[in-house]
């Protein structure tokens, strides 16, 4: 990830405010965890419990169906794996080397 250019004090909004809302997507957190999350679409029932519980909005959904994982932002916290109701689980953490 490229290091962002730090702003001078004159360039900052008043009072330390953040005016461009929704800018958290600009910070890519996908490389924070050496492990990776994979999705098994063959067992997935599209219940979207993972989508509801994901703290980083990294479960990609289209037309009410899961379509994949946003690897740029997923920190591989494992909450989705925990809540996934299918047997076997449709979400799995694997180590980066294996991937």
């Amino acid at each position: 990830m490229k290091k962002e250019k730090l702003k001078k004090w004159q360039e900052l909004p008043i009072g330390g405010l953040i005016l461009d809302m929704g800018n958290s997507s600009e910070t890519q957190t996908g490389d924070w965890n050496p492990n990776r999350l994979v999705w098994h679409d063959d067992t997935c029932t599209h219940c979207l419990l993972c989508w509801i519980n994901c703290p980083d909005a990294s479960i990609k959904v289209k037309d009410s169906k899961m379509i994949g994982i946003d690897d740029y932002h997923c920190k591989v916290c494992g909450i989705c794996v925990e809540v996934c109701p299918t047997k076997p689980k449709s979400l799995e953490i694997i180590s980066e080397e294996v991937a």
């Binding site: 730090l6 702003k7 900052l12 009072g15 330390g16 405010l17 953040i18 005016l19 809302m21």
Partner: peptide
Amino acid sequence: PVLYGAADRPDY
């Protein structure tokens, strides 16, 4: 929408 009261690290 704006955000009041964000945290700063030593870089800001």
